[in-house]
Design a protein around this nucleic acid. Structure first.
Length: 278
DNA sequence: TCCTATGTTGTATG
DNA sequence: ACATACAACATAGG
C-alpha cells in the first residue's frame, strides 16, 4: 500500500502514543525487517522511554523517544502501523509491538519488505544523520522546476515513469502516484525526460506538487479518496476508462512496473524538427 | 494452479 | 564508470 500519503496516514496512527511511556516491547526477533540488529537492541532502547516525536519524509518515518532513541520505519510493500487497545493480542505478522498504559502501537508487515532501524543520538532534539540528509520533499520550496530540469537532464533517457520512482529524487512517489502525476501532466510514461520542453517541465512540476499535496489532505489525513476526477479511482484493474477522454485505459509494463495510462490524453503535440515555438 | 501486488536492492548486461 | 534491466525477497488474494 504505502506511498507518500499512505505513509503519512500510518504515521498518524501512532500519534495517540505521543508523550506516553513505553512500558513493554514485543519483538519478532530474527525477522528480516529488523536491520543492523535492531531486533536485539530495541527492547532495551525503548522500554521506559517516552514517544516524543513522529514524522514522515516520503516513504520514510522517524519516531523519536526521550533520551535520543530513534526508530526508523519503512513500510515496504505491505507494512502498516496501527493503534490498538492496551490488551491487544499481537497477531502473526505484528513484528514490533510497543505497549503503553492506554494503548498498543503495532507494526505489521506480512511480506516483510519493510525495514525497522534503531539509532541512538545524544538527545531527542538531534535526529540521526540519515534523516537530516534526505533529499528535498516534493512539497518543499527547494523542489523547484529548475531542480526538476537538472534531474531530467541527468537521467535523460530513463523512461519518465521509472524516473519518478527514484526515491533519491522524488521521495514518496510510488507506482500509483507516478501514474497519477503523468496522467495529470498529460505526459506518456515512456517519455524521455531529456526531451521535455520548458512548459512540459512546468506541467510535470505542478502535477507532482498537486498530487502530493492533495493526496496528503485526503488519504494522508483520514484515508478518504482523492477527487473522483483523478485517475486514482479507475487505475486499479483492467477495463477502466480515462476520466478525461472516456476511452479505454492501457496497462503496460514500463521499467518493470505495471503502468496505467491514457494514450489519447497523455500525448505530446507533434513538432517539426528545427523549429521552436515554445 | 497461476498470476498479481502501492518497494527496494543486488547482480547481470550493455 | 555508468546506465538500465531484471530477479529476488515473502505472503496473500483473485
Amino acid at each position: 500500500m504505502p506511498e507518500l500519503a499512505e505513509v503519512h496516514y500510518f504515521c498518524r496512527r501512532w500519534e495517540p502514543g505521543l508523550r506516553h511511556k513505553v512500558t513493554d516491547v514485543l519483538v519478532h526477533a530474527g525477522k528480516r525487517v529488523f536491520k543492523e540488529g535492531a531486533d536485539t537492541r530495541v527492547t532495551e532502547a525503548l522500554t521506559g522511554r517516552t514517544l516524543d516525536s513522529a514524522q514522515t519524509h516520503g516513504k520514510q518515518m522517524l519516531f523519536g523517544f526521550t533520551g535520543g532513541a530513534w526508530l526508523g520505519v519503512h513500510l515496504g510493500m505491505s507494512g502498516e502501523l496501527r493503534c490498538e487497545p492496551a490488551d491487544y493480542a499481537p497477531q502473526k505478522h505484528d513484528h514490533l509491538v510497543l505497549r503503553q498504559a492506554g494503548r498498543t502501537l503495532v507494526f505489521e508487515d506480512p511480506r516483510m519488505f519493510g525495514a525497522i532501524t534503531l539509532e541512538e543520538t545524544p538527545s531527542a532534539k538531534q535526529p540521526p544523520e540519515w534523516w537530516t540528509n534526505l533529499p528535498p520533499r516534493v512539497q518543499d520550496d527547494a523542489f523547484t522546476v529548475d531542480l526538476l530540469g537538472q534531474i531530467s537532464k541527468r537521467r535523460a533517457k530513463t523512461p519518465l515513469k521509472s524516473l519518478l520512482l527514484i526515491q533519491e529524487h522524488f521521495p514518496g512517489i510510488g507506482n500509483w502516484m507516478a501514474d497519477e502525476v503523468l496522467w495529470q501532466a498529460r505526459l506518456p510514461p515512456t517519455q524521455a525526460p531529456g526531451d521535455l520542453t520548458g512548459p512540459e517541465l512546468q506541467r510535470l512540476h505542478a502535477a507532482l506538487r498537486h498530487v502530493c499535496e492533495l493526496s496528503l489532505e485526503t488519504i494522508g489525513k483520514d484515508w478518504s479518496d482523492p477527487p473522483v476526477t483523478w485517475l486514482f479511482g479507475v487505475r486499479w484493474k483492467d477495463g477502466g476508462d480515462c476520466p478525461q477522454t472516456g476511452k479505454p485505459l492501457r496497462r503496460d509494463q514500463v521499467g518493470g512496473r505495471t503502468t496505467c495510462w491514457s494514450p489519447a490524453w497523455q500525448n505530446r503535440p507533434k513538432r517539426w524538427s528545427g523549429t521552436s515555438y515554445e
